[in-house]
Amino acid sequence: MKNFFATPLRDEDFKKKNFCYETWIGNCFYAWDCGKAIGRYLEGLKEGKILGVKCPKCERIMVPPRIFCEWCFVLVEDFVELKDTGKINTFSISYISWDMKRLEKPQIPAVIEIDGASPGYGILHLISEVDPKDVKVGMRVKAVWKEEKEREGKITDIKYFRPY
């Protein structure tokens, strides 16, 4: 009663291109607007500070900053300086790149709950200066900053977080 069509291209056919096809490479360059909140966040990073925002209504302190509280739906304008320390909420050890190539040295991405923000409020960043085997959820970490003159207002102004 059921038919299941579709013609699989075998790997060898695909490699030899035994079929009609066209290719296209997109020229996709963007200038993304940072917006108010993230613009301010990046300025903070350049100054060696991690900034959060505080909701005037529910008073939670959020990072990364945003100009609204998505719970209370009110405008948020109150920037707060947070610490550059925190604890690992969760982490991974990544052995592959975005196009599935093997990495020589694994990366350790982690969600880091930043001290001074409300509990559970973290950012995505990398962990280093530690053996991957020793990384644990709950581990205390501290930001390792680029030299002041090298900082350019990017998330990468923090090189990584390291245990301390």
Partner: peptide, 23 residues
């Protein structure tokens, strides 16, 4: 107190497609 406003973040989207002509 704001020194230099950061407005844009530049980036790229890697897009490469291979279209089969189909049956």
């Amino acid at each position: 107190n704001r020194k230099k406003e950061i407005i844009h973040f530049f980036g790229q989207l890697p897009v490469e497609s291979l279209y089969t002509a189909g049956i």
